Amino acid sequence: MYDERTGQLDHQWATYAYAREEGIEYGMQRGIQQGMQQGMERGKIGTIVNLVKEGIIAKEVGAKKLNITEKEFESYLQEM
């Protein structure tokens, strides 16, 4: 038997399902955006590391372009 309480519960479950789907979609969009930002940052770091390794720019300039210390930049030079 379908009564008012059952209708309220159905509505509540539908609301939860909708909110869940919206949350998943929002989370996926944020993840994609963050991934793109991290990828661009890694690309920038890689480009500057390559310029330093090829002797085109000085290590000090590379660190300055990335807004990091020379010591931090050294770790990127060793890593890449």
Rank of each mutant, 00 (worst) to 15 (best):
E41W: 13
I56E: 13
Q8M: 12
T15Q: 01
I45P: 01
N50W: 01
Q78F: 01
Q12R: 09
Q37F: 11
M80L: 13
Y16M: 04
Y76T: 00
Q8E: 14
I68L: 03
Q34M: 13
Q33C: 02
G23A: 10
G31T: 14
L51W: 14
G39W: 11
Q78H: 09
K65M: 15
H11G: 10
W13E: 09
E41H: 11
G7E: 15
S75I: 07
L66T: 02
L9T: 06
V61S: 09
M80S: 07
T69Q: 07
T47L: 14
K64V: 03
R42P: 00
G31E: 06
E21I: 02
V49R: 05
D3L: 10
I56W: 05
G27F: 01
A58C: 01
G27I: 00
Q29E: 13
E72Q: 15
K59L: 05
E22A: 11
G43D: 09
V61W: 00
K65Q: 10
E60V: 10
R20A: 06
M36P: 00
T15H: 06
W13H: 08
M80D: 04
G31N: 11
I68T: 06
K71G: 04
Q8C: 01
Y16N: 00
A63F: 03
E22K: 08
D10M: 11
S75N: 10
G23C: 05
M1A: 11
E4M: 12
I56M: 10
H11F: 03
V61P: 01
K44C: 02
G46K: 13
G62Q: 07
R5S: 04
V49C: 08
E21H: 03
L66N: 07
Q34E: 15
K44A: 12
A14M: 02
R42V: 12
Y2Q: 10
Q38G: 02
E70R: 04
G35Q: 09
Q8G: 01
M40S: 04
E54L: 10
A14E: 05
G31M: 06
A19P: 00
L77S: 10
K65C: 05
K65N: 12
N50S: 11
R30A: 13
Q29A: 14
A14P: 00
K53H: 13
E60L: 11
K64H: 07
A63T: 05
N67S: 14
I48H: 01
E25V: 10
Q33V: 07
I24V: 13
Q12C: 02
T69N: 09
N67Y: 01
G35S: 12
K65Y: 10
G43Y: 09
E25T: 08
Y2V: 15
D10V: 15
Q33M: 08
M36L: 15
M36S: 11
N50D: 13
V61K: 13
K65I: 14
A58E: 14
Q37H: 07
Q33W: 04
M36F: 13
T69C: 06
